[in-house]
Amino acid sequence: MADDLFKALADPTRRTILDELSEKSGQTLFEICSRLSMKHRLGISRQGVSQHLAVLEAAGLVQTRREGRYKFHDLNTAPLRRIAERWLVPDSSGPEENTS
């Protein structure tokens, strides 16, 4: 489960997909492809995007939802919280705040 999550986050295209879904949740495959090609100038096929989405879905970061005849992709950030809880000290008043 954790391996799936880290593997999903390790790819820059998949992180861009998450960026776009965080801007607006509930996108069709077509919209995700449009954003990647038009906004980010990524030359990636629709099939390639589908494969990235499958990896993100396996990691629980993307959920698909059927509404009538359409299929939408939603962002699910719950798995990211588990990463934060794993290492972050609850009281993070460290000696120095580093936000870089």
Binding site: K24, Q27, T28, E31, S34, R35, M38, K39, R69, Y70
Partner: peptide, 17 residues
């Protein structure tokens, strides 16, 4: 609409049923 208006550089698009 399955895609609300989306600005992508010089082009804006939307998709409806």
């Amino acid at each position: 609409f399955t895609q609300e208006p989306l600005e992508m550089g010089p082009v804006t698009t939307a998709v409806f049923d």
